[in-house]
Amino acid sequence: MKRPAFGSILLGLIPFAAGCFSVSLWDRIHPIVLGLPFNFFWLISWMILTPICLWGAYRIETRRDLDSKPQQTGTSGMVFDDKSEGGAA
């Protein structure tokens, strides 16, 4: 099984450090930011920052996929199909 790249794992750990392990640092009311208690503000911001971290990880992973593609296409029978975009039903 192909493991994720080290860089993308690091990017994936950032949201865990921010939203989980560091709870006692940010679980407080003050300072109030944008009208929200700090703990609410902090977790809501990470709902937006997490996709940014994952987007970085995505860039790393797709580049890796492209590098290893020549060996893969022969065995797994990939079909490239432009018409399939978004079409599900």
């Binding site: 994936g12 949201p15 865990f16 939203g19 989980c20 679980d27 703990n39 609410f40 977790l43 809501i44 990470w46 709902m47 997490t50 996709p51 971290c53 994952l54 990880a57 995505y58």
Partner: peptide, 15 residues
Amino acid sequence: LYVIGYWPLGCVIGF
């Protein structure tokens, strides 16, 4: 707050 804390992290694992 755990509800809004774990959701993005679950997505990280899923990724």
